[in-house]
């Protein structure tokens, strides 16, 4: 991968546990808010979704993700770190494709910033999906 906001394949439990240690050296962070997005096995006219293949404009992802982080930090002063990781490639249903983690001094800004980051990821990150049935 060309940047730290993307990972090849699913966001595995091992990767999640590694990412969750990133705020451990900040004893002032009293709250850790996490969102994990997973692939659903939706039943569609084309059949049941077995997996999603994600693609991204990798060279543009970094700039957009950094802009999201900048906006979130400006909007929520209690936020201490923002981690965003999205999958590219094939992610099977039941597996995770998006990880967002906010560390903050207290719960209020953390949980709100987490939701805000999620909405901006969907709006701004140049990522596309193709369902596999």
């Amino acid at each position: 991968m060309k940047n730290r906001y993307l990972t090849a394949g699913p966001i595995t439990p091992l990767l999640i546990s590694e990412l969750m240690t990133l705020g451990n050296d900040d004893a002032g962070a009293g709250a850790v808010s996490v969102f994990i997005g997973k692939v659903r096995d939706d039943e569609t006219d084309s059949g049941r979704v077995k997996a999603i293949e994600y693609s991204a404009y990798e060279e543009m992802v970094s700039g957009e993700a950094e802009e999201i982080v900048r906006i979130v930090r400006a909007a929520f002063s209690d936020v201490r770190s923002v981690i965003i990781v999205h999958s590219v490639g094939i992610v099977r249903s039941g597996e995770a494709s998006l990880f967002i983690m906010i560390t903050s001094g207290h719960r209020d800004h953390g949980t709100r910033a987490c939701r805000h980051t999620l909405e901006m990821v969907k709006e701004k990150l140049p990522v596309w999906k193709k369902e596999i049935y």
Binding site: G37, Y57, L118, V121, V127, W128, K129
Partner: peptide, 9 residues
């Protein structure tokens, strides 16, 4: 770059 609506998440 030609960018269809984004679909991340």
């Amino acid at each position: 770059a030609i960018l269809p609506p984004f679909q991340g998440g």
